[in-house]
């Protein structure tokens, strides 16, 4: 019994240690490797489909884009960007049937969800593209960054 436990631990440790060494080594020489010990870079730094806060703010206050919150109803009601439509990713078809008439094909549509690690907005983009809306962007910082930067947040039901 003790020998089996020892063997299990020794083999597991060897597998984990060698895999980790290989993975870290590969990451160090691979051009697509990531920097260790610091957060991953924001997508808005490298991908124009993602907006940083200043650009999202500029579009919002110039009324040059339609903002849409893709979180669930509870998330939206806890706090959303004033004027943002509610277009939940989990019920896109039903919601788009309700608010889709407020989008025009020439509009720039800015989607957002919780924050940089939220992927709900990414899942809505192809659906809007398929519906004929090609100027879709994602505000990467989402409602968390919007609130943290001191911007106005509205609590309550869909407008």
């Amino acid at each position: 019994m003790t020998a089996r436990v020892g063997r299990l631990l020794a083999e597991s440790a060897a597998i984990l240690a060698l895999s980790a060494l290989w993975g870290l080594g590969w990451n160090a020489v691979d051009p697509r490797g990531v920097a260790l010990g610091r957060p991953l870079p924001r997508r808005a730094e490298t991908d124009p489909r993602y907006l940083p806060h200043p650009r999202a703010r500029e579009l919002y206050f110039a009324s040059r884009a339609v903002f849409a919150d893709v979180r669930s109803r509870s998330g939206y009601e806890r706090g959303h960007i004033p004027g943002a439509l509610h277009l939940p990713a989990e019920a896109f078809a039903e919601a788009f049937g309700r608010v889709g008439t407020r989008f025009r094909p020439e509009d720039k549509i800015v989607l957002y969800c919780d924050g940089p690690s939220c992927t709900l907005a990414d899942s809505v983009v192809p659906k809007l593209l398929a519906a004929g809306f090609h100027r879709v962007r994602i505000y990467e910082g989402g409602i968390e960054e919007w609130a943290a930067r001191g911007e106005q947040v509205r609590v309550g039901e869909a407008e």
């Binding site: 984990l16 060698l18 993975g23 870290l24 010990g37 957060p39 991953l40």
Partner: peptide
């Protein structure tokens, strides 16, 4: 957040091994 890059670099190779 600081742990995500290291885990992402190592996890696939643990699975492969």
């Amino acid at each position: 957040a600081l742990a995500a890059p290291a885990v992402a670099a190592v996890l696939p190779w643990i699975e492969v091994a």
